[in-house]
Design a protein around this nucleic acid. Structure first.
Lengths: 116, 116
DNA sequence: CCCTTCTAGAACGAAATGGTTATAGATGAC
DNA sequence: GTCATCTATAACCATTTCGTTCTAGAAGGG
């Protein structure tokens, strides 16, 4: 987890953290609000936020005693850019092949096989 | 790492595994070929391949004693689809808003304020 | 000030991760 | 069958990760 991309993908590898990001699309929120949906202690959520912050996926500010988390989606753009390098490997081939196979199945239903 | 998306993002969180995927764009390869670029033992690479396979990012076949790894990019499409849910948070807003603010500052430098 | 509110840190434990070396297993050649 | 080749597994270790509970710290309100 040395580079930025690894940190971003690593942050996204956790369902709780993805849910937190999803929540933040609705607007900034404090730790208590972010922790509410989860059967998890507050310190656990605080550490998830620390991971997201380290990956550059959120920034934080204070409002009174609360600390607001704010979504920073730019690293997600970087991740998307990386994934774009693989577009051709699922765009051209499978979907068209699947369509082709679907049409073949319509006419010859027996030709489908499940190779273990 | 219970669900599929977590497995995919988790697999992508490692630079070695991303490099392996990059290599596989050039064509199928056996373990020895995949291990060559890295200062790492063969079993270590075998386990990285196991992680990639578990995430659905590669499939494997035999050719004589060798096992060929084949890139399966479909999970990357799923990951891209997830990331697409955040597009508006970096595409529409920042760049255009920043440009707008820059132009406003040029003509009315005082109207900019930082709330809190 | 003191007290309440909200969040972070410390200390701990279980499990996962990423590497090692040594060895076993599968496959094809002879 | 025997041997060579290629890869996986086993056993081990260090580190990281993810959760816990308890406590400390920061910021305002009365």
């Amino acid at each position: 987890m040395t580079d930025q991309l690894s940190a971003v993908f690593g942050a996204l590898a956790d369902p709780t953290r993805r849910a937190i990001l999803a929540r933040l699309r609705a607007g900034d929120a404090n730790v208590a609000e972010l922790a509410a949906p989860f059967a998890m202690s507050q310190p656990a959520v605080s550490r998830h936020l620390k991971v997201l912050e380290a990956a550059g996926l959120i920034t934080r500010s204070r409002r009174a005693t609360a600390r607001l988390s704010h979504l920073e989606a730019n690293p997600l753009r970087d991740a998307t850019a990386w994934l774009a390098g693989y577009r051709e490997y699922w765009e051209e081939s499978h979907d068209r092949l699947d369509e082709l196979l679907a049409r073949l199945q319509d006419t010859h239903p027996e030709e489908d096989e499940e190779p273990t």
